[in-house]
Write a protein that binds this DNA or RNA. Structure first.
Lengths: 178, 178
DNA sequence: GGTGATTATCAATCAATGGGACGATCAATC
DNA sequence: GATTGATCGTCCCATTGATTGATAATCACC
């Protein structure tokens, strides 16, 4: 690697910057692949969570997905209007709504999975299988070291009523929660 | 690598998803490191561009940074108010404002560079030097293959008057333009 | 049974983006 | 040198998304 003067290294040689670029590019690519599926990235994240454990309350979903509970209302609204989930009464706690996948919603999961396959292929198709695996391993290690939750996108920090984040609250809506 | 049932692979084993997570994490980390410097990520991106070529017009800056020209007005306003840049009359074209770095602005560059160093260290510090270089190379190769401009964050697509992007216009403000 | 906390929701506010229009200026043409 | 059309920066406004605060229903505890 060309290690020019470190005092002003080109951004292409800044892994953290390239990571930022590629993260955005990955989101955009996945967004496009998800268009024919008919759900947004965030909605797919929801469905995926529900696939693991059906019937969670919105509050629990908010916590796992790290979105504000008020936002969760609209998110469930969208998915319910589309017929992918339904709200049922929670017999144990009638304040809470248990969110359940419908058959239509469940049918969407393999399509999203295929979109993820396609996304990986599209991004890393030019790499050899060995390089691809190496990259995957390194990324997973970095993510572990950063204490990123294995399946949760860090797009939103102040979930539920977590301690608020005092840093510059510039807009942040980059969310592949899932 | 554990290659469980491909039909529902955990997201940690989805490089494109981990990339998205890490991209966001990188942005956040850099944001925090930039707080003591006193500029936002975007502002630092501007200063960095100007360091390469002083005196560009706002339009040119918009084009390079891929931000909307209306946004550039406010961006230059902020930086000018902070005393980091100044607008001068362009003798060749008196419609255009030539944006110049001030000494104060120029003094900020090494601090931002140090923040970038710290960001890389913070993200990849747990990797060996060899792994770190491998990762950097692989990321750069993927970025090249994706045709990402070497120093430009793809946060904004419709710069200047580029053809509008018809896909879902969900909020996107993830911008380490620089 | 009463008090306070919790769940989901709604209304209002705020920040950021994108589109359109406007004055000033340039470039080209007659 | 006046005119026409385009460009640069700016401002105003509509839209979108997020955040805050308030509210009705329900729970848990005493």
């Amino acid at each position: 690697m060309v290690t020019s003067d470190k005092s002003f290294r080109p951004l292409r040689q800044r892994p953290s910057f390239v990571l930022s670029q590629l993260g955005f590019h990955s989101d955009r690519t996945f967004d496009e692949l998800l268009v024919p599926v008919g759900v947004t990235r965030r909605q797919y994240g929801m469905l995926r969570i529900l696939a693991d454990a059906d019937g969670r309350t919105q509050q629990e979903l908010s916590s796992v997905l790290r979105v504000h509970r008020n936002v969760m209302v609209g998110l469930v609204d969208e998915l319910e209007a589309a017929g992918f989930v339904e709200r049922r009464r929670n017999p144990a706690d009638r304040r809470a709504h248990a969110v359940h996948l419908t058959d239509r919603g469940r049918a969407l999961l393999p399509m999203g999975e295929a979109a993820l396959d396609a996304c990986d292929d599209q991004l890393f198709g030019t790499l050899s299988a060995a390089d691809r695996e190496t990259l995957g391993d390194l990324l997973a290690r970095v993510a572990d070291a950063a204490h990123l939750l294995p399946g949760v996108h860090p797009g939103y920090e102040q979930a539920g009523d977590a301690p608020p984040n005092p840093i510059s609250s510039r807009g942040r809506s980059n969310t592949r929660t899932g």
